[in-house]
Nucleic acid binder design. Structure first.
Lengths: 198, 198
DNA sequence: GCGGGTATATACACTACCGAGTATACAATC
DNA sequence: GATTGTATACTCGGTAGTGTATATACCCGC
């Protein structure tokens, strides 16, 4: 194992994430990715079998980071007791992210997972699609677990509904470039997890 | 004006919609689109300036159909009086669409507008992005108008929230291939437009 | 009405380029 | 000295866009 193979692999997956995220799957070229990773294309192909496999591997790699980040936002004391505080934190993280991008003079471009899934809508068996499914399922399960801990009614259904509001907020924020949607989604989500009639 | 120019243009926009919808913006080729429209590529370029412009024009063309279809679903007597019935109809249309695709042994692939916007996330000025913005704004405004007519509280905010649930339902239905999300989103939307505390 | 001119519409054949993937050779570690 | 990793240089197919030629309908002067 000459040179540091795992470090090279990590650099490749990182560069792949950056470029796939910025330009989408099809428009990100392997030449660019290899260049950004500081590696030739031949080396890249030593580490991954194809562009399709690279996209899948890079999303699997990314999953851990996203889950950790989400966990970090939800691990505030208040959010472990009160379902409304929990979902409020979740949407705050989105607002924070949108603003951070704006501060860097970039546009918010939403979830890399969802965007790739939509770009490859006609290829349900694609590695990136499978990684996306696993990712979204894991997030939803984690949210359901926490909602149940807070004593929310119908935690599983509520988790799916909150996740849809998250996805919707990301879509419309991307389309209109307006953070307002994230705030409205937050209000809706808090209303949903409220105890109350039906 | 030899031959029927407007009919040719309509055929081109129709073929463009079909292929852009199926394979996305980048992976749909102009050769394919021209072939499907029964026209050579040179003729296609007589009618549109570029692939980018074609995507924009085709979405503008599509906007009317989608709005009309949505209107048709919401024009049930009950839905013009009761906000809950109104949004229920809206989500029924999604469920109906998903099932129709499944019956034709195809996968549901969501909104063509949203998918293109996500594919071109880094190009906010792209013609297709502008068309998408206009489209989503028009849908939201129409929904707000109808909700207000039903006497829903905060109709404008509620319209945005219901639209986010719609977008979220489409995203997760695409990702998981499961209609269940549309039903859960419907329940959430009905709860949101309900009169009640905060 | 009618021949010819003009703007419009379509066809064929082509270019230039980019991007995924590969044949082969070389280098570094154990 | 064998295995693993990296580099150079290539192939080959696909795709956006174009140069040039031709066909169709309308219009206008007469």
């Amino acid at each position: 194992m000459p040179r540091d193979s795992t470090a090279t692999r990590a650099r490749i997956l990182g560069a792949a994430y950056a470029l796939f995220y910025r330009k989408g799957f099809q428009r990100a070229s392997l030449d660019e990715i290899a260049a950004k990773a500081g590696v030739t294309k031949r080396t890249l192909y030593y580490h991954v079998r194809s562009k399709d496999a690279l996209a899948g591997a890079m999303l699997e790699h990314q999953h851990g980071f996203v889950l950790a980040e989400m966990t970090r936002w939800m691990d505030r004391p208040a959010a472990t007791r009160d379902a409304r505080a929990l979902v409020a934190r979740l949407f705050e993280s989105v607002v924070h992210w949108v603003k951070a991008e704006a501060a860097a003079r970039r546009h918010w471009t939403g979830s890399g997972f969802t965007r790739i899934a939509m770009e490859l809508a006609d290829l349900p068996g694609h590695p990136a699609r499978l990684a996306t499914r696993r990712h979204k399922s894991a997030l939803e399960a984690e949210l359901a677990r926490r909602l149940a801990e807070c004593g929310a009614r119908d935690a599983r259904d509520a988790a799916a509904q909150v996740q849809m509001l998250l996805e919707g907020a990301m879509a419309l924020t991307l389309i209109h470039g307006d953070v307002r949607y994230a705030r409205l989604a937050s209000a809706a989500a808090r209303r949903l997890v409220m105890r109350g009639r039906s």
